[in-house]
């Protein structure tokens, strides 16, 4: 064992520390969600309640019609869920290092495992919720293309990789700059409205369209809609670019994390 900064590939870190990852993952899942009945319910009820509120506000009050020819409910659900999943993974992951301060101060272990376990627990649970909502919507007669999951699952993975990179960077910075956790909430809120989740890109005025279209998350939800609402499965070059971008975000985020993690002990 050498305490040097020689980079070890993520896969090797996870392979070597799989028992630790499994332990953190279970702890995350059980203590945060499954530990209490309300916790588990909340994990599903929160997005459902939001969906119901948006439905009320936009279709009942503002009388918005179908979006891109799809019912508003289905149109929003397909995109809202991944957003909320990413948002929650980011928020929980950002404070995960601080939450394990006791361990970090006393035990030597690869700190990144904590972040991976936190993100994995959130995303796995939210993906299950996503599937459940799609099934429920289908049961209510909404035209869900389940074969679209063949593309949707890789898209979720692309999202997870990028989210992991962002979270690694934020979690590391959070140790030194405590405000990040508090800034994150409003920033994510603003970003959600700037992302074509509650509206289609086609409704955005021409002049602003390139700006909104440049949002990588917007691209992702657009592709999810292609797959699950229209059943269009053919991968595009855009998907390859998205994949490359998400890998790059991950690499950059991890680089920042590994540069900062040796100094966590002083500050957590």
């Amino acid at each position: 064992m050498n305490h040097s900064l020689a980079p070890v590939p993520t896969a090797a870190v996870l392979q070597r520390n799989r028992a630790l990852f499994a332990n953190f993952f279970r702890r995350e899942l059980f203590s945060r969600y499954l530990g209490s009945a309300s916790g588990l319910a909340w994990a599903f009820l929160h997005p459902l309640a939001l969906l119901a509120v948006y439905h009320f506000v936009f279709t009942t009050v503002f009388r918005a019609g179908p979006m891109d020819g799809k019912s508003f409910l289905l149109f929003v659900a397909v995109a809202l869920w991944p957003w909320l999943a990413a948002q929650e993974a980011l928020q929980r992951g950002t404070v995960s290092i601080a939450a394990h301060a006791g361990l970090i101060r006393k035990v030597a272990f690869p700190h990144e495992v904590v972040v991976y376990a936190s993100i994995a627990a959130t995303l796995v649970l939210q993906f299950v919720g996503y599937l459940a909502v799609l099934v429920v919507l289908a049961l209510f007669g909404e035209p869900v293309h389940f074969e679209g999951l063949l593309l949707a699952v890789p898209l979720w993975i692309v999202m997870a990789v990028a989210v992991a990179g962002l979270t690694l960077a934020l979690a590391a910075l959070q140790v030194f700059i405590r405000d990040i956790e508090h800034i994150l909430m409003p920033v994510l809120m603003i970003l959600m409205y700037l992302t074509p989740i509650l509206y289609p890109l086609s409704l955005v005025p021409e002049g602003m369209k390139p700006w909104v279209a440049a949002n990588p998350f917007g691209y992702l939800v657009g592709r999810l809609r292609d797959a699950l609402l229209d059943g269009r499965l053919n991968p595009t070059w855009g998907d390859a670019v998205a994949f490359v971008i998400s890998i790059s975000v991950f690499a950059a985020g991890r680089w920042i994390f590994l540069r900062l993690s040796p100094h966590f002990e002083d500050f957590v």
């Binding site: 064992m1 006393k106 035990v107 040796p262 002990e265 002083d266």
Partner: peptide, 28 residues
């Protein structure tokens, strides 16, 4: 033990290190 990083100097350990640093550290 590798828990904290020295501000200067180098540490080289040629083997597996086990540490019992504080009472119940690493226990939940």
């Amino acid at each position: 033990a590798g828990v904290i990083t020295p501000t200067r100097g180098t540490v080289a350990v040629a083997g597996r290190v086990g540490a019992l640093l504080e009472l119940g550290s690493g226990f939940h």
